[in-house]
Design a binder for these strands. Structure first.
Length: 535
RNA sequence: GUCCAUGUAGCUCAGUUGGAUAGAGCGUUACCCUCCGAAGGUAAAGGCCGCAAGUUCGACUCUUGUCAUGGACACCA
């Protein structure tokens, strides 16, 4: 419908010999301003040197389209359109035919997109912050896939390097402790309960027969166990990755010295104080950073450069990394490295999500994997459920700093809007159980009232909302939308009786709410929420 | 100190190419189930959109300054 209007306005402009303006069509907030409106007249004031009201009436005079029932010009120069509502009712057929595909499109045009998210180090289990990143990343992937992008969801496992040493040492220390021996936990060690748990298991299965195992054993055992846990938790959170990339493998696949050599050859390194530096300040960064430390070991930056090189080699049109804001300083370095290796940094987009602050008993709890103080993803799922958790974390944009009040989440979980939406879904399910129709009629006769239009407008809007969310990469547009849709339905339900004595009316109303039912389901699926048939 | 985000109703947040009277939920107040699910609906109260300039027909939205909050500024990852 928007396109029809844009085209007719463009035709009118052509008649007036006006070119090179982009016509915008909006849906006004208020009903009395019509179904659609445009600000084109106001945009043209400068070019034409005329009063916007005059321009508007000129344009209106040149518009003639069968779909438009009424046009109004309102100060300071809006043109408001009232259109025939047939397309809304017609759309019910589309929804019921396309079913689970309703709202999908091909605007992505098969573009290859890689979304890397969560990628938490396997030095502990997932916590609240990962829950947000996971909800965002996976929802974005679902939305983009639905919109015709070729999406790969990826998890980068940092299973090598310093922190894994510390992890191994921490496990060894705990194990020794249980065996009644002393082995100091490193300063940078990990104190999570899951590590104590692991040590206990080791002891129960092997008693003290592992005391003479070297540190590699503990490292491997701990990483393997933790990765398994992480993947299982994510699966329960309804996230299934397409690709897991291991840092260890990257280190084996690429000779890291080679990468440094290329950087040197391209003139991006220099030596200072016995270390080798990356001249990233000459690209995007403000300061330079170390690649090879004085003790000849590599910083974490080097394998990460190799990892991103690997992604580029796989030929994505776009790569999205989702980091917490605590890694903010890292972005410029990473992008610099991409450029330094001769790749296009524009293809790499880094999204920063504000960290979640945990509030407990009215106080901010500092979360840390090292100290083991945090709420885990698993606990979250057990307490409030996947639906509530995912909805909650997707509904705000990435930039909002969120406070997560655990007490509140537990005690008043009904405050979560997800229940409002699910309730609408369950209500419809329950009506359909009583009466259902599967045949779609050629014509609808009984749905020509404002109440029906109000709901159907929302159902119709879904397609555009999805496109918007995919192109702007904003999953929270979906939560906003589905809430509106549920609201429209609850309103409809309270005003209109669906099952009536009139068979024809009943049938059409059933089909209407079925289209709502389907649309809610599709929308929720995009954010990983599964609505229940019964609540 | 420098850089990046954020300041919208009592609280949590929408408001994304600058549009008409700034919106929800929760909380507060008052109504609505003889009838498909009241986890619902209706209504009221609640706002100098942090503050100050600027840009323009028009600014919550853009620019600059300023204050406040969070985060980042390692030869840790």
């Amino acid at each position: 419908m928007k396109e029809i209007l844009i085209n007719t306005i463009n035709e009118a402009l052509k008649k007036l010999e006006i070119y090179d303006v982009s016509v915008e069509i909006d849906v006004p907030k208020q009903k009395d301003f019509g179904d659609y409106s445009t600000n084109i007249a106001m945009k043209l004031t400068k070019v034409l040197g005329k009063n916007p009201m005059d321009i508007a009436s000129l344009i209106v005079k040149n518009i003639n389209n069968e779909n438009i029932t009424k046009m109004e010009i309102k100060a300071p120069g809006f043109i408001n359109f009232f259109v025939k509502k047939d397309y809304l009712v017609e759309n019910i057929k589309t929804v019921l035919t396309e079913k689970d595909r309703y709202g999908s499109s091909n605007i992505g045009n098969g573009k290859k997109v890689n979304i890397e998210f969560v990628s938490a180090n396997p030095t502990g289990i997932l916590h609240l912050g990962n829950a947000r990143g996971g909800a965002y990343g996976d929802s974005l992937a679902r939305i983009m896939r639905f919109s015709g992008f070729d999406v790969t969801e990826e998890y980068y496992i940092n299973d090598a390097g310093n922190q894994i040493n510390n992890l191994g040492e921490s496990l060894k220390s705990r194990y020794y402790e249980i065996c009644g021996k002393n082995y100091p936990i490193p300063d940078e060690g990990y104190h999570g309960k899951e590590i104590i748990e692991m040590a206990k298991n080791l002891y129960e299965e092997n008693k003290d027969s592992l005391l003479d195992k070297d540190i590699e054993f503990y490292k491997n055992y701990a990483t393997e166990k933790l990765i398994g846990k992480i993947i299982a938790d994510l699966k329960e959170y309804r996230i299934n990755y397409d690709v897991y990339t291991s840092e260890k493998e990257i280190r084996n696949k690429y000779n890291l010295q080679n990468i440094i050599d290329i950087l040197t050859k391209n003139g991006y390194t220099y030596e200072r104080d016995g270390a080798l530096w990356f001249k990233c300040s000459s690209i995007f960064d403000e300061v330079d950073h170390v690649l090879v430390k004085e003790d000849k070991t590599l910083t974490y930056l080097v394998p990460d450069i190799a990892y991103h090189l690997d992604k580029y080699k796989r030929g994505y049109d776009k790569m999205i990394d989702i980091f917490g804001t605590d890694h903010h300083g890292y972005v410029a370095r990473l992008k610099s490295s991409v450029k330094a290796l001769g790749n296009d940094p524009e293809k790499l987009e880094v999204k920063l999500l504000q960290l979640v602050r945990l509030i407990q008993d009215g106080e901010v709890v500092k979360m840390s994997k090292r100290t083991g103080k945090s709420v885990t993803l698993k606990e979250l799922i057990d307490e409030v459920g996947v639906n509530a958790a995912r909805y909650y974390f997707v509904k705000s944009s990435l930039d909002t700093q969120m406070d997560f009040d655990l007490n509140l989440a537990k005690s008043k979980s009904n405050e979560n809007p997800v229940y409002y939406v699910c309730y609408a879904y369950a209500r419809i399910s329950s009506i359909l159980k009583e009466k259902d129709f599967n045949e779609i009629p050629q014509e609808f006769d009984a749905l020509n009232d404002e109440d029906s239009y109000n709901v159907l407008e929302k159902v119709y809007a879904f397609k555009e909302v999805v496109k918007n969310a995919a192109l702007k990469e904003l999953p929270h547009l979906i939560t906003n939308y589905v809430y509106d849709l549920a609201n429209a339905f609850h309103n409809y339900y309270s005003r209109i009786r669906i099952i009536t004595d009139d068979e024809l009316v009943t049938r059409e109303r059933i089909l209407l709410i079925k289209s709502v039912h389907q649309t809610i389901k599709n929308a929720l699926d995009l954010i990983g929420v599964i609505p229940p048939e019964k609540m």
